[in-house]
Design a protein around this nucleic acid. Structure first.
Lengths: 136, 136
DNA sequence: TCTTGACTTGGAATCTGTCCATCGTAGGAT
DNA sequence: ATCCTACGATGGACAGATTCCAAGTCAAGA
C-alpha cells in the first residue's frame, strides 16, 4: 500500500478518488515527476481528472510537508514524495535525470553565524550537477 | 566603474547602449534581479529597450560565465553578477530576499563515490532557507 | 437520507520565457 | 568623415507552466 496515502488519511483529509490517484502516482523512491507528468499518469486511471485538481493536490501535499518541491532546471517544478527521508539531489546537466543522494556531513553546520545575517536558518538544499553514465 | 562592463568589453563584445545599461543595472554585490526587474530598471535609463534584448543579453552573459542564473523559487530565474566570487545563497522563506553566503567546507567532497551512481559530478549548489530578520 | 462545506472542473487569465522577421547601428574599411 | 555590412535590437506572436474563478459535484457527519 501507499505510505503517502496512509499518512494523508491520518491527517483527516477528505478522501476523493482524485486525491487517491495523485497520491498513488507519487508513491515510491526516486520519483521526481512534473505536475504534467503526474496529471498524465493520473489520467490513465481517472480520465476526467483536471490539471487544476492535480496542481491543487500537489500544492496541499507540499504544504503538509508530505511532498517536496524540486526546481532543478528553471522549467517545470518536480514533486518528490520522499519527504521523510532527508536527501539531496544529483542532476544530469544534459538529460536532466535526477537521483536522490545522501552526502555525509551536515551542510547546515557549515554556515557560520557571521554568515547568517540574522536569519533563522532552518533548511538547506544541495544540488549536485554533472554528467550521468548515459550522457558521458 | 562597472567591473562587469569592463570584463565584457575585454571579451570583444560589440558595445551597444542596451548592453551597457543591462550591465550597469547588474553591477554590485547581493544583486539578484529577475529578468523583468532588470528590464524595468534598464527602461528607466533607456525607455525603448525591449524585453527580448534583456533576455538575450542576460543569456549571453550567462554563457560567457560573467553572470550566474539562480532558480531559488521555481518562479522567475534571477541573475547574479557575482560570478567570479564562489558563493552560495541564503533565501528568506517568507519574503524571498536573497543574500550571498560563504559556507566553510567543500560539499563536493561530502558526496561519497558510492552515492554518485556513475555520474561525473562537477558542480554543487547550496541553498540555505530560513526567516530573515524582517520576517522574524 | 439530508445537508453542507469542501472539492473538482474547465476555461480564461497570468506569468515567464522563446522565436522570428524586420529594422537599426557599431565599428572596421575606405 | 562616410560607407558597408554583419551583428544586435525590436515588438509582437507564440508556447509552457501555473493560477484563478464561477459553477457544479460529492464525501461524510447529523
Amino acid at each position: 500500500m501507499s505510505d503517502l496515502l496512509e499518512r494523508l488519511r491520518g491527517r483527516g483529509w477528505r478522501m476523493t478518488s482524485q486525491r487517491r490517484v495523485v497520491a498513488e502516482v507519487l508513491d515510491g523512491d526516486h520519483v521526481h515527476l512534473t505536475a504534467d507528468e503526474v496529471h498524465a499518469r493520473a489520467a490513465q486511471r481517472l480520465p476526467e481528472i483536471s490539471r487544476a485538481t492535480v496542481y491543487n493536490t500537489l500544492g496541499e501535499m507540499v504544504s503538509l510537508g508530505e511532498v517536496i518541491e524540486v526546481a532543478t532546471d528553471g522549467r517545470a517544478k518536480r514533486y518528490d514524495p520522499n519527504a521523510h527521508h532527508p536527501h539531496q539531489h544529483l542532476v544530469c546537466s544534459t538529460c536532466g535525470t535526477i537521483r536522490d543522494v545522501h552526502p555525509t556531513g551536515d551542510p547546515l553546520a557549515d554556515l557560520p553565524a557571521e554568515e547568517r545575517f540574522g536569519f533563522a536558518v532552518s533548511q538547506v538544499e544541495v544540488t549536485y550537477r554533472g554528467l550521468c553514465p548515459s550522457c558521458v
